[in-house]
Design a protein around this nucleic acid. Structure first.
Length: 293
DNA sequence: GTGATGGTGACCGTAGAATT
DNA sequence: AATTCTACGGTCACCATCAC
């Protein structure tokens, strides 16, 4: 049993009465309700707010911040993990006012505005770090695993498990990934990677999931251009924008080393595009469910 | 200061997902 | 199949803030 609110609905509720009393009418604990609000990036009244209000003092509401790119506008309250997600059906038979209606397709913000907001949110003075000594935790783990393999090789000449990230290209790739993940972490983006050579990459952005590939240009675009040997194997980044309809044209974003513009110099643009992709996916998903409602 | 109110953080059990 | 991981919500202790 749970409730589904839009962020604005829940915001109005938690600023209308203390969450401890609101929680009772929702049959959830106050702490659980507060956590749901935090998940939805909904500010709660500060300490002393209700006491001030009751004493007739002036109080100010903290405004509801804009929805983060790729994040859902819906907040679930009191729905356990894994259990069937409750969407609209149980709302009608509760005593809770203002239960969520089918969401209208109102975004309130153009994609251009979202992009501008992403640019502002990225740390202005981020510096690309070319060393791996303080790498992003995920990269650090790969490096430690490689160290272990290297040690095993030194101990036993017949060890078959060779280090995987020693070549100049792999090192460059890890440096790039570390910088990308670190930069995106400023926007609460969580990264994951898997596969023997960490070739599967993904990002959790808001409530969206964006997949990408970072590899040699030759492997991502096998037929394009003659291989350049000037500065080693060229690298490229590819992002697949999730499709929601089968007839939808497949959409990919692509960057690669240019003559003057290596990928390292495009890091910021790539980060912006990745987050914006999450927002676009969210809107497409919403449009999709709306069309089928 | 005192008592009331109410938000926060640490910790825990649970359950599904992921991994082996 | 057994395990580990992870996210969640609950309880509890704590403490910030208020009116008086």
């Amino acid at each position: 049993m749970g409730y589904l609110f839009t962020r604005l609905q829940l915001y109005e509720l938690v600023w209308a009465e203390p969450i401890s009393t609101l929680a009772k009418s929702l049959v959830i604990s106050d702490v659980g309700l507060a956590k749901a609000c935090r998940r939805g990036d909904i500010p709660l009244p500060p300490r002393g707010y209700w006491a001030k209000l009751n004493a007739g003092q002036r109080v100010d509401r903290t405004p509801l911040p804009l929805r983060a790119p790729g994040a859902s506008d819906r907040v679930e309250v009191g729905v356990g993990v894994g259990r069937p997600r409750v969407f609209r059906q149980d709302v009608a038979d509760t005593s809770v006012p203002d239960a969520a209606p089918p969401e209208p397709l109102v975004y309130g913000e153009t994609l251009d505005a979202v992009e501008a907001r992403i640019r502002l949110a990225l740390p202005a003075k981020f510096r690309f770090v070319h060393k791996l000594d303080n790498a992003h935790p995920l990269i650090g783990r790969l490096l430690r695993e490689d160290d272990a393999r290297r040690e095993a090789m030194a101990k036993n000449r017949y060890a078959w498990d060779k280090p995987r990230f020693e070549s100049p290209f792999e090192q460059r790739r890890l440096v790039f990934l570390s910088n990308l993940f670190t930069l995106l972490a400023a926007l609460d983006v969580r990264a994951w990677m898997r596969g023997r050579e960490a070739r599967e990459l993904g990002l959790h952005i808001g409530d969206q999931h964006v997949e990408l590939k970072i590899d040699t240009l030759a492997s991502l675009r096998p037929r394009k251009g003659p291989p350049k040997k000037a500065r080693g194997e060229p690298m490229a980044v590819e992002v697949r924008v999730a499709r929601w309809k089968h007839d939808e044209r497949e959409e990919r974003l692509f960057w690669s080393d240019g003559d003057a513009n290596r990928l390292e110099n495009q890091l910021r643009e790539i980060a912006v595009a990745l987050v914006l992709t999450a927002e676009r996916q969210y809107r497409k998903a919403l449009q999709f469910s709306y069309d089928w409602a």
